[in-house]
């Protein structure tokens, strides 16, 4: 693994002619937990989406593990392949697949993208559910989950393939204070295991 699993160098992001972020520089070590803070509309989500390869950026460079993203150029298929294996993203509104149970949501990528057996994927999912305290909700559909439960299932889905970098968009937004503390503890445990996290 590279010395810094996540590096941003002089990244500039603009949308509709408006510069949201200029010269963003980050060097994140393994096990480091970094929070991006800023008012609404300041570009926090935009940075995360650029790191995850969902949107482009206008200047600078982003490195995630072995993947290197160039400004103004869509990554090719091979680069995207490397990127997807290096970073997981938990969306603000979870974006769980609505037609699948929590367990199916978590197992889908390991089985279809990483070629794991259904049994192996289910075992790992159960482990994550237990760690995150949602082991009783495995068969529930996303619409049957509370905001906090959906958040934790989404974290489990992102972690199911063990990405070195985990990005989380507004992870505390849908949680009440006790749940926030709980999630804080979970994130501490995960970073202690050597993962780079970016809650904001």
């Amino acid at each position: 693994m590279a010395a810094y699993p996540l590096v941003l160098r002089d990244v500039r992001l603009q949308r509709g002619g408006r510069v949201l972020v200029s010269e963003a520089n980050i060097e994140a070590r393994a096990g480091e937990l970094i929070a991006l803070r800023g008012p609404s509309g300041s570009g926090k989500t935009t940075i995360l989406r650029a790191i995850a390869g969902l949107d482009g950026f206008d200047a600078g460079a982003i490195e995630v593990g072995q993947a290197r993203l160039e400004a103004g150029r869509a990554p090719d298929r091979a680069m995207l392949h490397v990127l997807r294996r290096s970073v997981g993203l938990v969306f603000q509104f979870h974006c769980l697949f609505e037609h699948m149970s929590a367990l199916q949501n978590v197992c889908l990528s390991p089985v279809h993208v990483y070629g794991k057996s259904a049994h192996e994927a289910a075992g790992r999912a159960s482990e994550l559910f237990k760690q995150l305290g949602v082991e009783t909700r495995a068969d529930a559909l996303p619409r049957e989950l509370s905001g906090g439960e959906a958040q934790r299932v989404a974290i489990a889905r992102a972690l199911a393939v063990d990405p070195p970098v985990l990005l989380m968009d507004e992870p505390m937004a849908s949680l009440d204070p006790p749940r926030r503390a709980e999630l804080g503890a979970i994130l501490q445990r995960l970073t202690a295991a050597g993962r780079t996290l970016q809650p904001r």
Partner: peptide, 14 residues
């Protein structure tokens, strides 16, 4: 189908 669902699928490597 909401864009978020498609973005989630992308980040999972589909």
């Amino acid at each position: 189908v909401p864009v978020g669902q498609l973005d989630a699928a992308k980040t999972l490597g589909f």
